[in-house]
Write a protein that binds this DNA or RNA. Structure first.
Length: 204
DNA sequence: ATACCGATGGACT
DNA sequence: GTCCATCGGTATA
């Protein structure tokens, strides 16, 4: 029996990021999300983690976006068109649930994919859900460790059962910018960011 | 009805 | 490092 996780906290509105924080282009928001705390509450308990890796998918002009011009608005990508500061959760390869933060403004389908977090609270619960030690270094792993699914689509990120809190900011010189991972189209654009100090980044 | 394609992860060398 | 199964969403018929 290990000691209780002392960093587990109840929801507190004083720490959440306000909707205005997300009202900017995805390419600007993505690096600012590094260091932010992602908190998830379910009947099983609370899990939280510090965001260490993000990717921007800035709308219709981006051929890699789920809302690229050639695709348009569909039932799948509809949450991306919603208000900033809400969730877009999509399924990848039919098995992995990936979490995005909606950016910009309503009607503009911009989003930031959260690719990795550093586990902070509820680590045993993450282990239970994952069944292995690689907990949150990758969008699919993170989705499973935090029990993220399509039920969270459109959910505002300033209240339970999932919210974002201000964290220790990542110094500018530790924000590493690279190309996005796992895409074919527009693969050369430098729209991935990670915390260069973190061991929880999915890949260098 | 059904074919196709992944914003990946896990098993393996 | 390499290989490939995975199945939900979408488009097409």
């Amino acid at each position: 029996m290990r000691p209780p996780d002392t960093r587990t906290r109840e929801f507190s509105s004083s720490r959440v990021l306000p909707p205005e924080f997300f009202s900017r282009p995805a390419v600007e928001l993505a690096p600012e999300l590094l260091g932010v705390l992602l908190v998830r509450q379910t009947d099983s308990g609370i899990t939280s983690g510090r965001i260490v890796e993000t990717e921007a998918y800035p709308g219709p002009e981006d051929p890699a976006s789920h809302a690229a011009l050639r695709i348009g608005r569909t039932r799948r990508n509809d949450p991306l068109f919603g208000p900033p500061g809400t969730a877009y959760v999509h399924c990848n390869y039919g098995v992995h649930w990936c979490f995005n933060v909606v950016a910009a403004r309503s009607g503009k389908p911009e989003g930031v994919l959260v690719r990795a977090v550093e586990p902070v609270a509820g680590i045993d619960l993450m282990r239970e859900r994952r069944g292995r030690e690689e907990l949150t270094n990758g969008p699919g792993r993170l989705g499973q460790a935090f029990a993220l699914g399509p039920d969270l689509n459109g959910h505002p990120l300033d209240r339970p059962p999932i919210w974002l809190e201000e964290g220790d900011p990542v110094p500018t010189h530790d924000r590493v910018s690279t190309t996005r991972i796992g895409i074919r189209r527009a693969a050369e654009r430098p729209w991935r960011w990670y915390d260069g100090r973190s061991k929880w980044v999915s890949r260098r």
